[in-house]
Design a protein around this nucleic acid. Structure first.
Lengths: 140, 140
DNA sequence: GATTGTATGTCAGGATACTGACATGAGCAA
DNA sequence: TTGCTCATGTCAGTATCCTGACATACAATC
């Protein structure tokens, strides 16, 4: 018997390595994993606020706002200067942002596919279910 | 059918939440998760070099050395000023470091146990195996 | 209408980890 | 011995993300 390292350690190791490989894959596009996550969520929920964007990518709204400023300067996202109602500023992808995201997604998908190629379909599903239950167990 | 989020996203979510809960648990001890990982590895491999310590905790040796300097100042670890042979400076836990680690481990174990309480023994093992295979698939 | 609570954006400051660069010491091969 | 390679420690600078604080805008309650 081989004294498996604890799941917490394996989780950290897998996440670290995945992030490293994704960053490598995204480097030619001048994108970080965080920026990719942001663009990805923006495509799924156009007009979302920075605070909601932050929650969806596990960051603070402060960090998300400074990241959005960078993406704005690069012309990948767009948002109005003032809100029409409330304080939330609805952000959207630009055409260039969509193009960058498409290119990035292809590269990221390749990495994720490589990671999961070691698992069967049922093992993949079991992994997703187990991680989901871990998240639930750790609370909101 | 419920359109499961991709494993990469779940991995990030689980790791983010686990780290958050661990940091909360360690806050009363004035320790971060990274520092805990460092102390933990030092107990398992006394006299290890900072570079090896960095590899085992998925950081750079530069970051590890500045973290070690903090732990040195707090008296939790100890290492010689010059190497007896080569350049590597063998680091060890102090008595106070062992005490801190023991207290920290109890708190961290509680968090990890809470996370894994949602899984059966066999599901836990399957999760560990799946993560290990993911790490291998992503290369060294 | 006034008050309170909640959510959002923003500013300021600090903590942490990174990259790049350099010098040093050991091991190996010509 | 000499030269090459590699690992380690260290310095400097940068990037990213965080916490704390504040003002603003809507919603809810009285």
């Amino acid at each position: 018997m081989s004294n498996q390292p604890p799941v917490g350690y394996l989780l950290k190791q897998a996440q670290s390595l995945l992030r490293l490989r994704m960053d490598e894959a995204l480097k030619p596009l001048q994108l970080t994993v965080s920026q990719y996550s942001c663009l990805h969520l923006l495509r799924r929920e156009p007009g979302i606020s920075a605070a909601a964007l932050a929650r969806g990518t596990f960051m603070t709204r402060q960090s998300m706002n400074s990241m959005l400023q960078l993406l704005l300067d690069r012309g990948l996202v767009d948002r109005p200067d003032h809100a029409e109602s409330g304080r939330a500023l609805p952000t959207e992808l630009t055409s260039a942002g969509r193009d960058s995201l498409d290119a990035a997604e292809a590269r990221v998908d390749e990495v994720e596919h490589r990671m999961l190629s070691a698992l069967s379909r049922s093992e993949n599903d079991a992994l997703a279910r187990a991680l989901t239950r871990c998240v639930i167990a750790l609370g909101t």
